[in-house]
Design a protein around this nucleic acid. Structure first.
Length: 220
DNA sequence: AGCCAGGCTACCG
DNA sequence: CGGTAGCATGGC
């Protein structure tokens, strides 16, 4: 049963690495805290990071975030009105700066038109530059909504564990995780588990570069 | 010197 | 619908 493997691997990874403290804010992780974000700007920072990290190492994203922070651009209103060239210069270290400039401005405009309540997932997906993983990262870490984040690491690790294949759709894989974990936890706990699980998968993947067999079912 | 990074869009058959 | 080139920079 694939549910059993999903549940077991969560506990193995948690035992291996401990709580990860995602999503990082202000350049730091915060293991054990689940009361973040505490402001609209912190929520916005999570969303900006989610866009910048698309196919990009977090180390590079941190440089871009540092530049944005210095320029006081991690606020929707100021990011919205900064000149494109200045924004591109700030986010240059994170790559794809022409695209990400558009993505960030589009999202900033959306964000200022919102109140604090969580946006609809379908609404996020309509925005240019926001696909399923980015939307779910925003919803899970920014708005505490129960959407499991599926990234390439998740695909890699769990296809090597034999419970999915690389070409399964995002929705398909996400549904596996939802149906495995949903019955076990009440809503508040479920959010934390989704948050920790994805963070643990990324942490594990960082320590086992591609090419290195990283089968979760094998003892190390 | 390459390959890869916490994806997505646009366009192809 | 599934498959893929292009996007850009920096780290290892």
């Amino acid at each position: 049963m694939t549910h059993r493997i999903i549940i077991e691997e969560y506990h193995k990874l948690l035992e291996l690495y401990g709580p990860q403290g995602w999503w990082p804010l202000g350049g730091e992780y915060h293991p054990g805290r689940y009361d973040l974000p505490q402001s609209a700007n912190q929520r916005f920072e999570i969303c900006v990071g989610a866009i910048l990290t698309q196919n990009t190492a977090w180390k590079s994203v941190e440089k871009a975030l540092t530049n944005l922070r210095k320029a006081e651009l991690i606020q929707p209103l100021s990011l919205q009105r900064i000149a494109d060239d200045n924004l591109k210069e700030a986010i240059r270290p994170a790559g794809y700066f022409n695209r990400k400039c558009v993505y960030l401005k589009t999202f900033a405009e959306f964000f200022v038109g919102q109140n604090d309540s969580p946006p609809n997932r379908a609404e996020l997906l309509k925005l240019r530059g926001i696909g399923p993983e980015t939307a779910d990262s925003m919803l899970l870490y920014g708005w505490q909504q129960p959407w499991f984040v599926v990234d390439t690491y998740t695909r890699r690790l769990f296809s090597s564990a034999g419970i999915i294949t690389m070409q399964d759709s995002y929705q398909q894989i996400q549904h596996r995780f939802h149906s495995a974990l949903e019955p076990l936890f009440q809503s508040k706990c479920r959010i934390r588990v989704y948050q920790e699980y994805h963070a643990l998968i990324v942490q594990h993947a960082k320590l086992h570069r591609p090419g290195v067999a990283g089968s979760l079912t094998q003892p190390h």
